[in-house]
Amino acid sequence: MFGETTAYSSFSVDDLDAARDFYGDRLGLSVEVTGTGDMRMMFLTLPGGARVFVYPKENHTPASHTILNFEVDDVGRVVDDLLARGVTFERYPEFEADDKGVVRPGEGEHEEGGPAGIAWFTDPAGNVIAVMETD
């Protein structure tokens, strides 16, 4: 039924202009803002071509889960680059992180195909994003 259609995920933000600047300038994604007035919306184009719909919501509440996961070859290098761009990384008490905020599995805990390192940060609307180093 849906195998032949186009689909995309979406999430809300409280300030579309701040989101445009963050996703476009800080993260370097392709950003397209369309519409006018109350009908403004934005599409992000992710590496690989997938698109994500971002819409303003007056009573926005940040998602309670990670909304985007970026797989990277070297999470430490990417975290350094994002720190230089002014991104702040989250720290969660249940995970032990290094001084940059990267969580790595302990000795013998890394599973094939699982993340070798992960770090989380938020967009200006408080939505959580992850960068993950995978095998």
Score class of each variant (00 low, 15 high):
E4M: 08
D25S: 06
T66R: 09
E109Q: 13
D14R: 07
R26P: 02
G86I: 10
A7N: 02
N69Y: 09
G24I: 10
E96F: 05
G76A: 15
A84S: 11
N127S: 11
E107D: 14
R77V: 14
E107Q: 09
R26Q: 11
A119F: 01
F22Q: 05
M42G: 02
S64R: 11
P47N: 14
D14S: 10
T6L: 13
H65I: 10
A97T: 15
R85V: 10
G114Q: 09
R40I: 03
F89C: 09
P62N: 09
A18S: 11
V103Q: 05
L16H: 07
L27W: 12
V128N: 03
H60M: 05
V52I: 15
G76K: 13
S64L: 11
G35T: 03
N69I: 05
V52A: 13
A130T: 10
G113H: 13
D38Y: 10
T45K: 03
D73P: 00
A7C: 00
G114F: 04
D123N: 08
T36E: 15
D25A: 12
L46H: 07
I129M: 09
I129F: 03
V79E: 03
E90A: 05
G48N: 02
D15S: 04
F89W: 06
T34S: 10
D99S: 14
G35S: 07
G108L: 05
E133T: 12
T45Y: 01
T34H: 08
D80V: 11
G24Y: 07
R51P: 00
V87F: 05
E111W: 01
H60G: 04
Y92V: 12
R40L: 07
S10G: 00
T134R: 15
L16F: 08
D15A: 05
P62T: 11
G28N: 08
R40A: 04
A125N: 06
R20S: 08
A130R: 02
V13T: 14
E133M: 13
E4H: 06
I118D: 01
E111Y: 00
L27D: 14
V131N: 03
R51F: 01
V13C: 12
A130E: 10
G101W: 02
V13S: 03
A116N: 00
S10V: 00
G106P: 01
L16V: 09
R91E: 15
S64D: 15
E109Y: 07
M132E: 13
I118S: 06
V87H: 05
P115Y: 14
V52Q: 10
V78N: 01
S10M: 00
E96S: 10
T45V: 14
E107S: 12
A125C: 06
L46F: 09
L29E: 00
P47H: 12
P124V: 12
E96C: 01
R20Q: 11
